[in-house]
């Protein structure tokens, strides 16, 4: 006996709300905007890192203590962790289901936030301590 023989719900009623959440395009937009920003920010950060290669502990701190490298690093870290969070979320939503998906989504928020805050804390500490 199939369910449809016993249920009073219509076929439409059963199918309703089982489709897409209709919010996917917002994530795609946020990914694109952060990606465009990261083209500039990542390139700038790689150039900054190249200037740090010849420096020791004090030299690196002095360089990252300047406003421009510090703000570039902060912008890069925050934009990158934001972009990372959305990207990993779409990977999780593609491959995981049920409780594994829920835990993975929570872990994703924790990881991306922890990396973001660690970077912000470190850059501010270099600048102000």
């Amino acid at each position: 006996m199939s369910e449809s023989d016993k249920s009073l719900r219509s076929a439409l009623g059963r199918a309703r709300h089982l489709g897409s959440a209709r919010r996917g395009s917002h994530d795609a937009w946020l990914t694109q905007v952060s990606a465009a920003a990261l083209i500039v920010l990542a390139s700038g950060f790689v150039l900054t890192l190249l200037t740090l290669l010849s420096k020791d502990y004090n030299g690196v701190r002095a360089e990252l203590g300047h406003p421009l490298p510090a703000i570039l690093t902060l912008l890069f870290a925050l934009t990158a962790t934001f972009h990372m969070h959305i990207g990993m979320r779409s990977i999780i939503l593609d491959y995981l289901h049920g409780h594994a998906r829920d835990w993975a989504l929570i872990a994703n928020i924790c990881f991306a936030s922890a990396v973001a805050l660690a970077c912000v804390y470190a850059v501010l500490r270099i600048g102000f301590v």
Binding site: T81, F111, Y121, I126, V129
Partner: peptide, 20 residues
């Protein structure tokens, strides 16, 4: 590579924290 960079971001955090 996106997933790799996700994990690799730990290296960036380590570098900045170490310098701080």
């Amino acid at each position: 590579t996106g997933a790799g960079l996700y994990v690799g971001a730990l290296m960036l955090a380590w570098f900045l924290l170490a310098a701080s």
